[in-house]
């Protein structure tokens, strides 16, 4: 091998172009049928909820990809698919180039991914002391050779998230929502993960506490080089943390774009409607024309493009044919109107 080739190979290794997470045409269906007997009596078929219905994206290492959308769009299901809490119905998930299921069978690989949850009151076991909660991953992965080292690591983590090492002896109910979320973050960090899935980590918090947690997460990302998959319904929050943003509607990605591009030139009609709907501080006394209608049921989604019943640009093609993601500038959009230049 020539010296030049070797240098190129080393360069490639340094740059490490393998994404942290790749999601390829992933779908996840849930069977929400009623029990067999009731179904037979009511003469109805199985009811399949298509929570996620074929989405693809990749998250390069050290960056943040956010998924936004209204409730029921499937974003939380994607979060759980990404750490293997649910198996996929279709498609595959690659973690650092390796099949997720295989990666999760190996505890060294498994310790590289962690998750932070929405509800600070349900995400900590009320019967455990904080030190035990944070030490759980350390024990599960055997990361501390002795109790003394484990205690030292827990104290370090508590300090890192802005709590006191003395807080380890307390129980979760002695803390406020924001402090509990800090404990959740400390637990997630205790296995030295590289990839963190954050499912609405601030939506249960008050706004001043939300700012604390968002700042903390950004600080930790910069210091530890973390990769984030960030789930939120709040576009303003997403703007503060993301490198790229995916907008989901009824189990599908409708737009995927760099954060700045999405906010400066939103392309999909749904993205635009979402932005228009957000009440904003600068808009006192503003009169708006909100998008009409509601999100349809994911059990029986509309034909063609799922957004067509609410879309001001919908035409016959939208009602019949589901659009696929196509490049538009540095973004990807799934919309016939954008394709045809009607947008």
């Amino acid at each position: 091998m020539s010296a030049a080739a070797e240098a190129r190979l080393a360069e490639a290794r340094r740059a490490d172009l393998t994404p942290m997470l790749e999601v390829e045409e992933v779908a996840r269906y849930f069977d929400v049928s009623r029990p067999l007997l009731q179904r037979l009596m009511a003469r109805e078929g199985r009811r399949i909820l298509r929570a996620v219905d074929g989405i693809s994206f990749a998250i390069p290492k050290g960056t943040t990809l956010s998924l936004v959308g209204e409730s029921g769009c499937g974003k939380s299901t994607v979060a759980r698919l990404a750490v293997g809490l649910y198996p996929t119905t279709r498609g595959r998930v690659l973690f650092d180039g390796q099949d997720l299921a295989r990666a999760r069978a190996d505890s060294a690989q498994r310790s590289r991914m962690q998750m932070i949850f929405q509800d600070p009151y349900a995400s900590l076991n009320p019967r455990w002391r904080v030190a035990d909660i944070i030490a759980e991953p350390i024990r599960a992965f055997g990361l501390a050779p002795s109790r003394v080292q484990e205690a030292a690591r827990v104290a370090e983590l508590l300090t890192q998230v802005g709590l006191s090492p003395l807080d380890g002896a307390k129980f979760p109910h002695e803390f406020s929502g924001g402090q509990r979320q800090r404990i959740s973050i400390a637990r997630a960090l205790s296995s030295n993960p590289e990839f963190l899935v954050c499912d609405e980590p601030t939506s249960a918090l008050d706004v001043s506490v939300q700012a604390q947690i968002l700042n903390l997460m950004k600080k930790l990302q910069a210091r530890l080089g973390l990769t984030f998959l960030f789930i939120s319904h709040n576009l303003a929050v997403v703007r503060q943390v993301s490198d790229r943003i995916g907008v989901m509607y009824l189990g599908k990605l409708v737009e995927l774009a760099p954060a700045e591009t999405l906010f400066t030139t939103p392309r999909h009609p749904y993205t635009r409607a979402l932005m228009e709907a957000i009440p904003d501080l600068g808009m006192t006394g503003r009169v708006r024309t909100p998008v009409g209608g509601e999100v349809p049921s994911p059990i029986s989604p509309p034909s063609g493009c799922a957004f067509h019943p609410r879309c001001p640009l919908a035409n016959d093609r939208c009602r019949a044919e589901a659009p696929v993601m196509r490049a538009a500038g540095d973004a990807q959009v799934a919309c016939h109107a954008v394709d045809e230049g009607r947008g």
Partner: peptide, 12 residues
């Protein structure tokens, strides 16, 4: 509850 999911994520 999410604390059980957190334990599942680390593979307990």
């Amino acid at each position: 509850k999410e604390y059980v999911q957190a334990a599942r994520v680390i593979g307990r």
